[in-house]
Design a protein around this nucleic acid. Sequence first.
DNA 1: TGCACGATGAAC
DNA 2: TTCATCGTGCAC
Length: 188
Amino acid sequence: MPMGGTQKLARAFYDRDTVAVARDLLGKRLVHRSGGIERVGRIVEVEAYLGPRDLAAHSSRGLTERTRVMFGPPGHAYVFLVYGMHSCMNVVTEREGHASAVLLRAVEPVKNIEGNTRGPGLLCKAMRIDRDLNGRDLSSDDFFIADAPPVEPSAIAKKPRIGVDYAGRWARRLLRFYIRGNPFVSKR
DNA sequence: TGCACGATGAAC
DNA sequence: TTCATCGTGCAC
C-alpha cells in the first residue's frame, strides 16, 4: 500500500546501471526497524563500485565468502566490517553475477536517529546496521529503502571515492555522489 | 596455521 | 599523523 514516504523501492530500481542507481539513491530513505524502533535516514552521499574490473571494488578480487553477496541478485544488502570495527553498508546493483554495488556513505537523520551519521561506519552504527544484515533482501519489511522525490541533477556533486588510493586510475574516477551543500555529507 | 591489510573514525 | 582492532584471503 502506497503510504506517503514508505513505498519500498522495487527490485527493478536496483537492477540498472550502477551509476544511475547511485545517483537516484540520493534523497531516498533508508529504513531499519529493530527492537520495536523504526529508524529512518535520508541518503545524502554514496559511492558506486562497478564490478570486478573496478580495482577499488571488493569484487575485483573475485568471488570469495566475503564478497558472495556482491555477486548475487540486486536489491540485497552487502554489509562488511572494515578495520576490524566498523560496519559499512552497500546495496547490490545490476544483474546477478555483475558484482556491482553502491556504498552508502552518509544519511541525514529523519526519525529515531541518535549520533553522527556522516560516514559509512557511523551511519551503520546510528541505524543499528551490522553484519547480521549481510545478504538481506531489501524488500524485507524491517529493512528497505523507501522512495522519495528525486534530487535536482544540478544539486548532485561528483567526486573521487574515499579511501581507495590503492586502485590506481580507478581511484581518480568520479564515482562518489552527494547532495551539494548538505550538512550531513561526510568530511574529508 | 600464520600474517598482512583494509571502501574508518577518533585522538593527538 | 597515528592508532585501535579483527575478519578475510592467501601465502606457507
